[in-house]
Amino acid sequence: MARLTINGRSVSLEVADDMPLLWAIRDYIGLTGTKYGCGASLCGACTVHVDGKATRSCITPIASVDGSDVTTIEGLSSGGDHPVQLAWVAEDAPQCGFCQSGQIMQAAALLADNPDPSDEEIDKAMKGNLCRCGTYNQIRAAIKHAARANMAGNDGEEVSV
């Protein structure tokens, strides 16, 4: 049994202590935006925030997040209008989209720590998030877009074209 806050809602779960957070979220809480891609911390598709930190939910036993505050893609913003989400749409980043919840959660955590990451810092933070559709250049552009928006307090569209 574990109690946690998920997207601002408290839940208690009667599941095995070692059930990964990912499957508790998907199959018991019923939020399916968080994806399964490898089950072994190798792809990043399952990334959520645990107390604000980007975390691979597929290898995180539910018991270890007892009492924690968990945010999934569904809770990142109320209307899909987190600066990272807006930047993703503006840069036309998704293709199939399956990796993108994880990419966005990872990027949001990066920008919360480091509002203006360099290319190397983006590489370091994002290289565990695989995308088989090859959207990496758009992801990089979207992270920079969101960084600009955060700093300028606007939508991050570049002024000159």
Binding site: G33, K35, Q85, V89, F98
Partner: peptide
């Protein structure tokens, strides 16, 4: 043209095969 499916692919709402859950389903 920008993709029409981006909004639902950035907020977790896009439904993939893995996300479908009919009532009473067994995994």
């Amino acid at each position: 043209m920008k993709r029409l499916d981006s909004p639902q692919k950035v907020n977790g709402q896009a439904e993939f095969g893995m996300d479908v859950r009919p009532g009473n389903v067994l995994m």
